[in-house]
Design a protein around this nucleic acid. Structure first.
Lengths: 112, 112
DNA sequence: CTATTATACCTCGAGACTCGAGGTAATGAG
DNA sequence: CTCATTACCTCGAGTCTCGAGGTATAATAG
């Protein structure tokens, strides 16, 4: 409540799952991609993304593999079936909340 | 991340400020109103609302007055100028994030 | 060749927020 | 008289984000 970073909870997870739906990616790449695609409106740092990736893998939503690209070692993550279910659950939850907020705000909220 | 209550952070505050924009209300009433207006999609309990009301008052976004209605003592809250500014800041932040998510999801997200 | 920047991974503690359980009182209904 | 409802409140647990900090290698600049 202190400053203006509200409404963040859950969005990094949603973003990760959505990006990995298209193709496998590695952590550092995901951090850049989220900021780039959203014009930095959404910009979780490495301190958010890496622990989340580990937790999502542990929960079975993601699987990882090491891959060497040009002498660089990267950890690539991809979506499992469980991760896909998680993504669709989060997506519909987001839709639901979005509808609720729209109702609450009563037209005062631009669709932009 | 454990279950499906994600995306909650900041929404109770937004809801309170938005409701008080229309008229003064008391805590218990706000709890019921949020659940009622959103069909329980959004339903913060008293343990969320009361501390938030106190914090918002302390920060100068709300002011309160005691009022006896039918022998019942209630604490009515209303929006200050500062609270109105806070509401508009949160509203535009929500719009921004909503746009970011829409971009991220890429059409996969229904507008409902 | 060497220094700095970019890539790529990671952890930790602080702070914020939600949540449910629990507690107190007074009023109204059966 | 008893119980559900109204109306207020606090507390601890759990979850999450955030920034700072740490390591190591490759590319670029001077």
């Amino acid at each position: 409540m202190t400053d203006d970073n509200s409404f963040m909870s859950g969005l990094p997870e949603l973003a990760i799952l959505r990006l990995l739906q298209d193709r496998e990616m590695y952590g550092y790449e995901i951090v850049q991609a989220i900021a780039a695609r959203t014009g930095s409106a959404l910009s979780p740092g490495e301190g958010v993304i890496y622990p989340l990736l580990h937790a999502l893998e542990k929960s079975g939503a993601l699987k990882s593999r090491r891959k060497s690209v040009g002498g660089r070692s990267r950890v690539y993550y991809s979506l499992t079936a469980k991760g896909a279910r998680r993504l669709s659950a989060l997506t519909s939850r987001w839709s639901e909340l979005n509808g609720a907020v729209r109702t609450l705000m009563g037209g005062a909220l631009a669709v932009r």
